[in-house]
Design a protein around this nucleic acid. Structure first.
Lengths: 183, 183
DNA sequence: TCTGAAGACTTCAAAGCTAAAGTTCGAAGC
DNA sequence: GCTTCGAACTTTAGCTTTGAAGTCTTCAGA
């Protein structure tokens, strides 16, 4: 029998924290618990979103673009570089992604006639409809996820997360946010 | 002057929620606040981790592998498919990633002589050292991030996040977690 | 008007990932 | 013992993203 257990189970959050404490002296288990749970939770949520959007015939990547355009408000237009900044992509990646979405009829791309260097990406009615369908699924999932939290817990959670977010956003003013978005 | 504002600012969390409410009837702003903050926070944290590991000469992707191996406990060995499951990658991607890490001396790869179908990936002392350095930076960052939270807030946050995590993990038992890990 | 510089996007090559098709080895049935 | 099935990894082809180099347009100055 090998030293490498024949069936190495995925560690639970609790096991993971315990292992970290064994391997790294001076670790605050409470901090680690918060950070690890946050990371894992986010991954699971993205898997769930991915499943839902896949069912609608669009990728998670495309949904990100739809969201950014809708958030910009009517007439739902943004330039490729604005989109790239919001999504944390390079302009090159944005060019390709827009290519695909134009081919699928989710957005249109045209030159800005008032400044011919710029390009305008605009949501099509089909794109808006896809966003709406995805949004309906997403909100159902989100409500279900938070279902067991009391009103007080929701309030604290929202407030505390917002505070943490403000802290990192101030620290990384807008730092060209490249770099892998793992976990 | 174009309709597309010349300088479209990245929306703040509050602006984002407000925009969603305008565009989607019946949205619970509190739920959306929690979900959006979670997602944004996670992205920012990954950018921060990426910066730190890059400073150590390893990628965020490599750090993930080091973490999984250390978490498995001494003698820090796992098979490629175990690693792939933990990181949410395909076996093929794992093969390539291990190739690179072997070339950099972070891990070794050898056949399991007791079962020659299996392969054993083992952390090298250099790999362990890199993990330790990354861990030191990560914990400093994490302590700093949570610095303004009261003990009560930390307790609630940890408990609530754990509860949410349990809820999704039960719902997606271990669903081959493929699918994009965006955001 | 012409020139130079900067900005916005695109193109190209290379890295890293997925999906699907191999390989190789071990275990079970005949 | 031979065959077949299944498991664990690797290989191959195609796609998405990155980084760097290019193209086109605008603007400011000579």
């Amino acid at each position: 029998m090998a030293d490498t257990a024949p069936d190495v189970a995925e560690p639970t959050l609790e096991e993971q924290i315990a292992a970290y404490q064994r391997e790294f002296q001076g670790l605050d288990p409470q901090v680690e618990k918060i950070v690890s749970a946050l990371s894992r939770l986010n991954r699971r949520m993205n898997v769930a979103y991915g499943r839902q959007t896949a069912g609608l015939g669009i990728s998670n990547a495309e949904w990100e673009v739809l969201k950014a355009l809708v958030l910009s408000g009517a007439p739902y237009r943004l330039g490729p570089s604005d989109l790239a900044k919001r999504l944390g992509l390079t302009p090159a990646a944005m060019t390709h992604r827009i290519d695909r979405m134009v081919a699928e009829g989710l957005v249109t791309r045209e030159r800005d006639e008032s400044n011919r260097v710029r390009v305008i990406v605009e949501l099509t009615p089909e794109g808006r409809e896809k966003w709406l369908e995805a949004m309906r699924l997403a909100t159902v999932f989100e409500e279900d996820l938070l279902q067991d939290l009391t009103p007080a817990e929701r309030a604290v959670l929202g407030e505390v997360l917002t505070r943490l977010l403000r802290r990192v956003e101030d620290a990384q003013p807008d730092a060209g946010g490249r770099l892998s978005d793992l976990d």
